[in-house]
């Protein structure tokens, strides 16, 4: 793990992986959308609006996976002070928040024709909304301090504390009698979903995952490069003749 603590090594590795994950995302997204929108049957109850599921369900998975990634990275960052783990946690939270938002919006769009309401206060929906607020809190806390390392550590502790919400979301449909339908893919034994619908769902699930990885790599890389640019700028200010500090105290520049 500490092999990758060297940021430039990570940047090189990320640059090598990224075209592949981006390519896989494009291909699987195209396939998944084709199967999902054109080559899969409409549901006998839900009609055509079942197709919202192919976006809604993967974004819900990824919203939780992104939070788990963030919490795990925060834990690694806090315990081993691994610099990349902190960057990954920082990079994951806006992506996760976006997935959560997409999940809430698509669910709401699906809910209006199906349940007759945009929003219901049931356990799954509420816990997902709380996840969204946890993401917002994480991002706000990250940027709330003048010293960025302090923000990183505080946000890391918050990410770990908020992790209790993830099992609550996952099992909310089993623990409470909710309006939201119970799990149908990750069931013990055969999933209670037709193979013709499972195929596009799985394609989209993998496509969303590789998309997440791609964006995560881009964000971590740009964080590293931004830190480098900042270091170079500071260096220039320091070594420039008539540096600001020198002028202020009236000393001759070093």
């Amino acid at each position: 793990m500490h092999r990758f603590a060297n940021p430039m090594r990570f940047v090189r590795l990320a640059a090598a992986i990224q075209p592949w994950t981006a390519g896989v995302t494009l291909i699987l997204l195209a396939l998944g959308l084709y199967f999902g929108l054109f080559d899969s049957p409409a549901d006998y109850q839900q009609g055509e609006s079942v197709r919202i599921m192919y976006v809604h369900v993967p974004s819900a998975w990824l919203a939780m996976a992104a939070y788990s990634t963030m919490a795990f990275a925060s834990g690694v960052g806090l315990v081993w002070k691994h610099p990349l783990a902190d960057l990954i946690a920082k990079a994951a939270s806006p992506i996760g928040a976006a997935f959560t938002f997409v999940c809430l919006v698509t669910g709401s769009l699906w809910g209006k024709p199906m349940w007759g309401t945009w929003w219901a206060w049931d356990a799954r929906l509420t816990s997902m909304l709380i996840l969204f607020f946890l993401y917002l809190g994480h991002m706000a806390l990250l940027n709330a301090f003048d010293d960025p390392t302090r923000g990183t550590k505080a946000a890391g502790i918050l990410a770990l504390a908020g992790f209790v919400n993830i099992p609550i979301i996952k099992f909310s449909v089993d623990w409470w009698n909710t309006l939201h339908q119970p799990a149908s893919v990750s069931k013990v034994g055969m999933p209670t979903i037709d193979p013709s619908m499972l195929l596009p769902l799985m394609l989209m699930g993998v496509a969303f995952t590789t998309f997440f990885v791609t964006v995560l790599l881009i964000r971590v890389r740009s964080e590293i490069l931004a830190a480098k640019v900042r270091a170079i700028r500071l260096n220039q200010i320091h070594s420039a003749p008539g540096a600001i500090s020198g002028e202020l105290v009236g000393e001759s520049p070093r």
Binding site: F133, L136, G137, A140, L141, A144, A154, N165
Partner: peptide, 14 residues
């Protein structure tokens, strides 16, 4: 933190 009071409610209420 800057604006600690408002931030606190965002962290704690969920």
């Amino acid at each position: 933190a800057r604006r600690g009071g408002v931030l606190l409610s965002l962290l704690v209420l969920p």
